[in-house]
Nucleic acid binder design. Structure first.
Lengths: 142, 142
DNA sequence: AACTCAATGGATTGTCAAGTCCATTGAAAT
DNA sequence: ATTTCAATGGACTTGACAATCCATTGAGTT
């Protein structure tokens, strides 16, 4: 495992939204069903996406969630950051507070390389890329 | 977070072993102290490293652990695999059982890219690289 | 042979992230 | 105005992973 549940769920949900007709709103529980995550928990995650301007929410009748911007403008990084991705960036494998390029722990350099790659990945991929996959959701194992 | 505690601890401990004079044995509790992980828990992790031939253990007087091979021959991948790294490799973000290149989930391709990069990283780096870092262990935040 | 030291294995407990519940707020429909 | 629908926020519970405990095994020492 290397993505928290909230992170994984947030990616699922926003990918689902990206694949809807633009502008179409979907309620949290519809989303939860489609994307197969516990409703109450997803609701919580959606709040974070809303607070971070990734999604727009509307209450009441015909309320629900839409992406706040076109999919190609939403980077994975934006989504991951919205649900706490931070700790990764500055986490020393050895738990040293003072671990940096000048004063590196034994694995600092190698670890840095991986962290950079991951962040690079998250920065360069967007929801736009998810749009034309054949298989969508809910086709669980036979 | 994206490394389990056991994974992080295993890396710490084996890096520590790599930095000792070759052949020097260290007990689990010395290790635990040096590397700052709970003794009983580290002990458990060391068993896995032993079982996977990464480390050699000896009981009783002057017993303890040594690396089973020279540091340059121990890849991060070996260590991570020893403490359960597997689930990552074949984990679909959407929880679909039947997600693959032919029948991809909406994020399959992008996710695959990242997974590959991570595995590539783990395969190409070894404990040998940790040998000449300046700062070693235990210099915790001031 | 008796003693000590240290790894092993498994059962047990603790903790925090994951997940649930419920009362409140706000927006639209009648 | 009232009702209904859906998001919001926070308090609460649960479960999985992290960590502890203890009895056993095996290897040196004397």
């Amino acid at each position: 495992m290397y993505l928290s549940r909230p992170a994984e769920y947030a990616l699922r949900a926003s990918t689902y939204l990206a694949r809807l007709e633009p502008g179409k709103r979907v309620t949290s529980s519809q989303l939860a069903q489609a994307v197969d995550v516990p409703p109450a928990f997803l609701s919580k995650i959606m709040r974070r996406l809303t607070a971070n301007g990734i999604v727009d929410s509307k209450k009441g009748h015909h309320g629900g969630f839409v992406l706040a911007r076109p999919p190609v403008e939403i980077r994975f990084l934006d989504i991951l950051r919205a649900v706490e991705f931070g700790p990764i960036k500055d986490h020393c494998l050895f738990g040293l507070g003072n671990c940096n390029a000048d004063n590196p722990c034994p694995l600092h350099v190698e670890w840095e390389i991986l962290k950079q790659q991951i962040e690079q990945w998250a920065r360069t991929h967007t929801l736009g890329e998810s749009l034309n996959a054949a298989q969508a959701f809910k086709q669980k194992q036979a």
